[in-house]
Design a protein around this nucleic acid. Structure first.
Length: 643
RNA sequence: GCUGUUAUGGCUCAGUAGGUAGAGCACGUCCUUGGUAAGGACGAGGUCCCGGGUUCGAAUCCCGGUAACAGCUCCA
């Protein structure tokens, strides 16, 4: 029997042997760290018997799949522990996720975080007992009767959904048996270090109509240091949480009388928004966009044309009205408003492409539990826009949109933190999507072509499209690892039709234009959230609400400090002065905590020599220089978007 | 919307078997004029989230809201 190893080397064996034995013959060291393997690309456990020629790859904790097997076993150990402590609990599912695992339980009475201690102790005991983990292949009937015997109703549902002819496997460790595809480690003692991290609710099968189960999250590592490092990293990441830091730094706040999902941007946050808005609008103008300014509300008639009224009315703020008055609603999007501007007057192919941009206030009645800091809110500011193009222009204009977003992300320093998702419709979801498969195929085909032409790396998201068309979503992840769309570029085949938009072509015929819905930098609030987390509040100089703070050393230097700040302001640098009667160390500490990029200290020495003592928040004391020299230095950073 | 946790001066938090509360920071006044991350003294500041109920008495116990946080679901 020939076994080809991952590195291409071939080993011959006379008899069949287990993966573990094969690993041992390769090296003892490898056998010690082996967790699972891939045989001809198929994931198997170490007890898997090799009985024919094959390609073998041994997986360790260094491999993502190795980690998954390890953590999946940890999940089973947790389920066993929970079942030992609470015998009436019913098991749902327990997969691995990025950096850990979870298991969903149906408890007869609720548990709390305080129960974690008990569960962890029981898990320790199971690990110490080093129970062998046995893989049992059974028929569907056997699986059903066994799970029925255990009263595991959720497992019965899972089995019922498995394909008729598929082999069903159970995994057994001690008194605990779970339905599972596997593979697993060979015994419970192989799991070394673990920790339960979170307790949360989750719907059975992710459907809100189903019962809410209790989900316990945990993670496991093969080295203690890696586990503590991971926990530490989580803690560190949480310190960057925009929702905490943004409030601490005075960027935004919320107030219960104002309402949920309605954050208030405080002076610093508002300044930041203004800086970003100007930056984006100016860049768009350079790229041929024209600005529109359209109302924040409209009659329901408008949303009826677009179809939003029927798809999303319950998510709209509809204004109460008296009889005989028009039914008004706050707008959840800008599209139809800009379409109406397009429709004002006849358009020729010579007019296209038209690129409309607008910094738009939008309103969406998100459900109460969905709000999150500045990331999900009920009133937000979108760098919105629509391009009306001919079919020939579609590809280039789409590229242009992506290029613009990419450029802006680059300037913001977020370019390397995003991923792309091609969001497609789900033909089975006729409720959400306009059910015209031909149009969808066409739109998605066009878009896929464009994406592939550009050589863009993306993943596909079925059922992630807008109801009227496919999207290219630019995704970013927050400090908790949760992914959100920050920017979206969409090809729309339907709305031009619904709004009867047209242009006159070379032959004098009326034609339907394509529409690109796009955001250049996304929703400003969300972008600000990402920036806070990216920079832990220490924004690059060009976007810092305050770029320079001038600190007087004594009252004698107050006037010149004030004058220096004024001079900087006149040069377009955002400067302020701190002339309080405090020691210089105190003023510096405060400026540092507020993450002001530059501090200029002015004492008698500087006043006499006509200099400023520069301190950067990053590198500390930078010595004395003339104000002109400093301006040159900071200008360079501002103009080049230095991070 | 669902599950869980939480709500005490501006902020971060402590506290009370049910008898109306405390620290640090911040703030104000005064002293101090100090050279690169906290100088000192004194002072003011609280409907203990809101509304009901139980009680002689509720910030504390019970019920109902509101808001914040984490997760689920949703996200044009």
């Amino acid at each position: 029997m020939k076994i080809t190893l991952k590195d291409g080397c071939v080993k011959e064996f006379e008899k069949t042997l287990s993966v573990f034995e094969a690993a041992s013959t390769i090296s003892e060291g490898l056998a010690r760290v082996a967790l699972a393997a891939k045989v001809d690309g198929e994931l198997v456990g170490l007890n898997h018997i090799l009985d024919k020629d094959c390609a073998l790859e041994i997986l360790t904790f260094k491999d993502e799949e190795g980690q998954n097997v390890y953590r999946h076993t940890a999940a089973h150990i947790m389920a066993q522990a929970v079942k030992n402590i609470y015998p009436t609990v019913r098991l749902a599912i327990g997969p691995t996720i990025k950096n850990g695992f979870y298991y969903d339980f149906d408890f007869t009475s609720p548990i709390s975080l305080e129960d974690f201690d008990l569960i962890e102790k029981e898990m320790q005991a199971i690990i110490k007992a080093d129970l062998p983990i046995e893989r049992i292949s059974v028929t569907r009937k056997q699986a059903l009767s066994q799970m029925k015997g255990y009263g595991e109703s959720y497992k019965l549902e899972i089995i019922a959904d498995l394909p008729e002819n598929e082999n069903i496997t159970l995994y057994k460790q001690g008194n605990f048996v779970d339905l599972c595809r596997g593979p697993h480690l060979t015994s419970t003692g192989k799991v070394k270090f673990f920790k339960l991290t979170q307790l949360a609710g989750a719907y059975w099968r992710g459907d809100e109509k189903n019962k809410m189960l209790t989900r316990i999250y945990g993670t496991a590592f093969d080295k203690k240091s890696d586990l503590s490092e991971y926990i530490e990293k989580l803690e560190e990441a949480k310190k960057r949480d925009h929702n905490k830091l943004g409030r601490e730094l005075g960027i935004f706040m919320t107030e219960e009388n104002i309402g949920q999902g309605l954050p208030l941007l405080m002076p610093k946050g508002a300044k930041l928004m203004q800086i970003l808005t100007r930056f984006v609008e100016d860049e768009e103008e350079r790229r041929g966009y024209v600005l529109t300014r359209t109302p924040s509300m409209a009659k329901s008639d408008l949303y009826k044309i677009s179809g939003h009224w029927y798809h999303y009315r319950d998510k709209m703020f509809v204004l109460e009205n008296k009889k005989d008055e028009d039914l008004l609603a706050l707008r959840p999007m800008t599209c139809p408003f800009q379409y109406m501007i397009y429709k004002n007057g006849l358009k020729s192919y010579r007019d296209l492409p038209i690129r409309y941009g607008e910094t738009a206030n939008l309103f969406r009645k998100e459900a109460s539990g969905e709000m999150h800091g500045l990331i999900r809110i009920r009133q937000f500011t979108l760098s919105d826009g629509h391009l009306i193009v001919t079919p020939q222009q579609l590809e280039e204009e789409f590229k242009g949109c992506l290029d613009l977003s990419y450029y802006l992300l680059d300037c913001l320093g977020l370019k390397d933190d995003v991923t792309f998702r091609f969001s497609r419709w789900d033909p089975l979801d006729t409720e959400k999507y306009i059910n015209e498969p031909k149009m969808w195929d066409m739109a998605e085909g066009i878009m896929k072509n464009i994406l592939d032409h550009m050589g863009l790396k993306y993943k596909e998201g079925v059922g992630e499209a807008a109801f009227y068309g496919p999207k290219l979503d630019i995704q970013a992840t927050n400090v908790f690892g949760k992914e959100d769309t920050i920017i979206t570029i969409q090809v729309d085949m339907f709305l031009a039709e619904k709004f009867d938009m047209s242009y006159v072509d070379q032959n004098g015929e009326k034609k339907r234009p394509y529409i690109i819905h796009r955001s250049s930098i996304g929703c400003y609030e969300r972008t600000i959230a990402m920036l806070i987390e990216k920079y832990a509040g220490a924004f690059p100089v060009w976007m810092s609400p305050t770029q320079v703070r001038v600190l007087s050393l004594t009252d004698r230097n107050a006037d010149i400090a004030k004058e220096t700040a004024a001079k900087l302001s006149r040069l377009g640098i955002r400067a302020e002065v701190d002339n309080r009667n405090e020691k210089i160390g105190y003023k510096i500490r405060e400026a540092q905590l507020e993450k002001v990029p530059y501090m200029l200290v002015i004492g008698d020495k500087e006043a006499q020599d006509g200099l400023v003592a520069v301190r950067s928040r990053k590198d500390g004391d930078a010595g004395q220089m003339t104000l002109d020299k400093f301006v040159e230095k900071i200008r360079y950073e501002i103009d080049n978007f230095v991070k």
